[in-house]
Amino acid sequence: MAFNKSMSRTRKVCNEVSEQASAVVKSFACLHAIYSQGKESSQLESAKADYLEAIDTSARALDTRLNTGYRHLGTPFLPVSAYQRVVAELRVSARSADRRRGRGQPRADAFG
């Protein structure tokens, strides 16, 4: 019984992480499209704000601990170093839109 509950909770967390990752990718694609069209600050700032919000929501999902059935224990979804790297790279990709404005396209290899 406890195993089924843990598996169910783990599946829910995995589904949430998957949905949030999809939202980050969509937001980045929207930011990239607006940026590449050369549209000005109101649309670009709105898309950037949406992207940063998607990053924050995704970071909260990635920071969730998988329930092991024990009250105060849990396994992190990602190791701390991987979690910090993913969130940092996502934020760098958002800031690159500001730095590269007028010099071409934003960095597409933000994860590499």
Results as ranks from 00 to 15, higher is better:
Val80Ala: 08
Ser36Thr: 13
Thr10Val: 10
Ser22Cys: 06
Thr64Ala: 01
Val24Asn: 02
Leu90Lys: 02
Ser18Arg: 00
Lys39Val: 15
Gln43His: 15
Val92Ala: 13
Thr75Asn: 08
Arg85Phe: 02
Thr75Tyr: 09
Asp56Ala: 03
Arg60His: 05
Ser22Trp: 04
Ser18Lys: 07
Leu44Met: 07
Met7His: 09
Ala2Gly: 12
Ser41Val: 09
Arg99Cys: 13
Ser81Val: 12
Arg95Trp: 08
Lys39Thr: 11
Val17Gln: 01
Ala49His: 10
Arg107Glu: 05
Glu89Lys: 15
Arg101Trp: 09
Glu40Phe: 15
Met7Thr: 07
Gln84Leu: 07
Cys14Val: 15
Arg11Leu: 15
Ala47Gly: 04
Asp50Ile: 07
Lys5Gly: 01
Glu16Gly: 03
Val80Asp: 10
Ala59Cys: 02
Leu66Met: 11
Ser36Tyr: 03
Ala94Trp: 04
Ser93Ile: 08
Gly102Ala: 10
Ser6Lys: 11
Arg101Pro: 05
Ala110Asn: 07
Pro106Phe: 03
His72Asp: 04
Glu45Leu: 08
Leu73Ile: 04
Val86Ala: 06
Phe77Gly: 00
Thr68Asn: 09
Val80Pro: 04
Asp56Met: 06
Ala59Ser: 08
Asn4Gly: 05
Leu31Asn: 05
Val80Phe: 09
Leu31Lys: 09
Gln105Trp: 13
Pro79His: 09
Ser22Thr: 05
Asn4Glu: 12
Gly112Cys: 12
Asp98Val: 15
Ser22Phe: 14
Ala61Asp: 01
Ala97Gln: 08
Ala2Phe: 08
Ala108Phe: 15
Val17Arg: 04
Tyr70His: 12
Arg9Asp: 04
Leu62Thr: 00
Asn67Lys: 01
Tyr83Trp: 06
Ala94Gln: 05
Cys14Asn: 12
Ser36Asp: 15
Ala29Cys: 14
Gly102Ile: 03
Arg91Pro: 02
Leu44Ile: 07
Thr10Gly: 03
Lys26Pro: 06
Ala54Trp: 00
Ala110Glu: 03
Leu52Phe: 03
Gln37Pro: 04
Gln105Pro: 13
Leu31Val: 10
Lys26Arg: 15
Glu53Pro: 09
Ala108His: 12
Ser36Ile: 08
Ser22Asp: 13
Arg101Ser: 06
Glu45Gln: 13
Ser81Cys: 09
Thr57Trp: 01
Ala61Ser: 06
Lys48Gly: 04
Arg91Lys: 12
Ala47Met: 01
Gly74Gln: 01
Asp98Ser: 12
Gly69Ile: 15
Tyr35Ile: 09
Arg107Tyr: 06
Ala49Ile: 02
Ser36Ala: 09
Ile34Leu: 14
Lys48Leu: 08
Pro79Ser: 14
Ala54Gly: 02
Arg71Met: 05
Val24Met: 10
Ala29Thr: 10
Ala108Glu: 07
Ala82His: 03
Leu73His: 13
Ala29Gly: 13
His72Glu: 08
Met1Gly: 11
Ala47Ile: 02
Leu90Asp: 05
Asn67Met: 11
Asp98Cys: 07
